[in-house]
Amino acid sequence: MWGVIFELARTCTLDLHTDYLISSTGQTSATGLSRLLGGAVSHDQVTRWLSSSYLDSAQVWAAAKPVIRQAERQRPAAEFAVLLVDDSILEKAHTDPSALICTHYDHRKGRFVKGLNFVSLRYQAGELSLPIAVELIEKTEAVVDPKTQKTSAKSKFTKNEYLRAMLRVAQQHVRYRYLLADSWYASAENLNTVLELGHDFVLALASSRTVTLRDKGRKNGQFQALDAPLFPDEQPLHVWLSSVQPAVLVARQIFLNKDGSQGVL
C-alpha cells in the first residue's frame, strides 16, 4: 500500500513523515521509512530533512487555521470553544543527551526521565480538537547549585511563561470561553492573564492553596488552606485567592478509589 501511495515520492515531506509515524506500530527510524518506500527516499534524505526542519507554533497554527476557520463557520451559535494546556514528555532513554533531549521530572511516574519535554495549547470545540501552539523545552542555561557546586541546565523560560506567551498569541487567532488546565498552571499570574484577556478558566487547585471566604479577609491577610473550609454538599464555594482580584468559584469532588479509599479534587 505504501509503495503504491508514495511510488512517486523522491523527497521527505511533513505529510509523508507524519503518515509514517501515525501508521507505524513499532520503532520508527529514517532507515525504516526508506525501507518502507522501497528506497525511493534514502535514509540520508530523511535525516537531512529532519535536521533542517524546525517546527514551531507558527507552523502548527498555519496547519490548524483553515480547519478551525471552517469549523467556526459551521458551529452552532450555542457551542463554544475551550483551550487546554498541558505538557508532555516523549521519553528518549537511549538517545544522546542534548539541550532538547535531557532529564525532566515526570509527575506521573514521580521521578526524572530522559526525553523531549514540550508544552502544547490545544483548541477544542465540540468534536474538533487540535493543537494550535507548541513550545519545546530546551535547557540551555547553566545553573550552579550553591550547596553542591554541581552544574545543571535549565530552560530560559518556565512552562508558565510559555503558557502566557501562547495565550497572548492565541488571543489574536481564536475565540474561546475557558482555559482548562491542571494545578501546575493555576498560578495567580496565569489566572490574571486569562482574566485580562477576557476569558474564564477551569483549573485544578492544590488542596494546600490558601484562600479566604471574605474579600476583607484578604486585605487583613486572613487565609487558610483550601481543604480547611466546609464545603456545602454538592455546591461550589466562593473564595478569594491572595493575588487574584475577583472571587473564584471552587467545587469539590470526592472520588471513591478501587481500594475503598477516597480521593478529593
Results as ranks from 00 to 15, higher is better:
64 A>I: 07
116 L>R: 02
215 D>H: 08
98 S>K: 04
10 R>N: 11
44 D>F: 01
57 S>L: 01
210 T>D: 04
38 G>Y: 11
216 K>Q: 09
209 R>S: 02
241 L>W: 07
239 V>H: 05
101 I>P: 00
237 L>W: 06
100 L>M: 12
183 S>I: 12
143 V>N: 08
264 V>E: 13
251 A>F: 12
194 V>W: 07
174 V>W: 03
208 S>G: 07
149 Q>R: 15
33 L>M: 12
233 D>T: 08
45 Q>V: 04
255 F>C: 09
189 E>M: 07
120 S>C: 08
53 S>T: 15
214 R>C: 12
95 T>H: 10
55 L>K: 05
153 A>V: 10
142 A>Q: 09
169 V>Q: 15
100 L>T: 05
136 L>R: 11
140 T>M: 08
191 L>W: 10
135 E>W: 03
145 D>I: 06
9 A>Y: 08
2 W>K: 00
4 V>E: 15
180 L>V: 11
39 G>Y: 09
75 R>S: 11
208 S>I: 02
225 A>R: 14
74 Q>K: 09
263 G>Q: 13
115 G>E: 02
190 N>L: 02
154 K>S: 03
39 G>N: 10
249 L>K: 13
147 K>P: 00
243 S>K: 15
67 V>C: 11
236 P>L: 01
129 S>C: 13
120 S>H: 05
47 T>I: 14
36 L>N: 05
177 R>L: 12
247 A>E: 05
257 N>P: 00
253 Q>L: 10
242 S>G: 05
54 Y>R: 14
42 S>A: 14
103 T>N: 08
132 I>Y: 01
163 L>I: 06
209 R>H: 03
251 A>V: 00
96 D>C: 00
194 V>C: 05
234 E>Y: 10
68 I>D: 06
225 A>K: 13
236 P>V: 04
127 E>F: 00
128 L>W: 02
238 H>T: 10
13 T>W: 02
232 P>G: 01
62 A>W: 00
9 A>T: 11
23 S>D: 10
90 L>W: 07
48 R>S: 10
14 L>N: 06
40 A>R: 15
117 N>H: 14
217 G>C: 03
58 A>F: 02
69 R>T: 13
4 V>S: 12
72 E>F: 02
125 A>W: 01
161 E>D: 11
174 V>M: 02
195 L>K: 01
150 K>C: 01
196 E>L: 13
141 E>T: 14
95 T>N: 03
59 Q>I: 01
9 A>P: 04
227 D>P: 00
49 W>L: 12
176 Y>M: 04
117 N>W: 06
240 W>A: 05
67 V>I: 15
229 P>I: 10
86 D>A: 12
252 R>H: 09
248 V>T: 09
245 Q>A: 14
167 L>P: 07
13 T>K: 04
237 L>V: 04
103 T>R: 15
172 Q>T: 14
123 Y>G: 07
98 S>A: 00
32 G>P: 01
